[in-house]
């Protein structure tokens, strides 16, 4: 049997077999909703445990068998309102605040001459949602933060992203292995030295996906915190032209990935 034989055989099997009727979309939708509810229930249950116990600052939650240290409520927390969660995502609370700060820090690093104001997607499939976003979510092992901002210049729109995985993550240590975990993308990677710090730097995305990032840098701090910083000349869904050039040189991208402002807990 060679390759062509196998192709034919697969085809014959599929033609000759009798598939059952098409699956019911509503059953799968129910399964999806139930899975989402389970996720949300974990969070709701964890929050209720803390509130009922009257525990305030510095309480460690146990959610889904995973310790979640540092989730704080009350006057010493930087948010005044109650913590709200949507699944694993914290929309109001200390981690959500860190996400906002991370976005501000990223914006502060953009060179003069670029605008970084909020924009809305123009592609109808995005329902007019915001292009500039920040997010804090509890991953399987550690808090994860992701911020994205559009950058505008001369009518073009590019995209910057910072993603931080706090201490406790299980991402690889080797810089290029680490870099290749970013959004599951492959790319041409090299390890560069930034003042003695080893950074995985991808200068060309080879994953074939045009809606992501052309270049990114990955750095693991000595305590295990991981920072990804990525850039793209275009912003998929904006329906605007690309920037004429990347915002940062690759050297700057690598350097910024080691910046202490991105070193979140």
């Amino acid at each position: 049997m060679n390759e062509q034989d196998l192709r034919r055989a697969f085809h014959d099997v599929m033609v000759a077999s009798s598939p059952p009727p098409s699956m019911d979309p509503s059953a799968v939708l129910r399964s999806g909703r139930q899975a989402r509810s389970r996720r949300m229930a974990v969070w709701t249950g964890a929050a209720v445990m803390v509130l009922v116990a009257g525990v305030g600052v510095g309480t460690a939650l146990v959610a889904n068998g995973v310790s979640v240290p540092g989730l704080q409520f009350g006057s010493n927390g930087s948010s005044s309102g109650p913590t709200e969660n949507n699944g694993r995502t914290q929309v109001n609370g200390p981690q959500a605040d860190k996400g906002k700060e991370l976005l501000n820090d990223l914006i502060a690093m953009v060179p003069d001459g670029y605008k970084t104001e909020q924009m809305q997607y123009q592609d109808p499939s995005y329902n007019g949602s915001d292009m500039q976003t920040h997010q804090a979510q509890k991953g399987d092992e550690a808090w994860e933060y992701m911020v994205i901002t559009p950058v505008q210049k001369d009518g073009g729109v590019g995209k910057l992203i910072t993603e931080v995985h706090a201490v406790g993550n299980k991402l690889p240590s080797e810089p290029c292995a680490l870099a290749q975990t970013f959004w599951g993308m492959d790319g041409e990677c090299q390890v560069v030295d930034v003042a003695g710090k080893k950074v995985g730097l991808v200068t060309k995305n080879t994953s074939g996906r045009d809606d992501t990032f052309e270049q990114w840098a990955a750095y693991r701090h000595p305590d295990g915190t991981v920072v990804f910083l990525g850039q793209n000349k275009g912003f998929y869904g904006s329906r605007r032209p690309e920037l004429g050039a990347q915002v940062f040189t690759t050297e700057k991208l690598a350097s910024l990935a080691t910046d202490q402002r991105f070193h979140l807990s």
Partner: peptide, 12 residues
Amino acid sequence: YLAWRRIQRHEA
């Protein structure tokens, strides 16, 4: 379904 919002922004 769980990742729908993120994935639907991807062409592929």
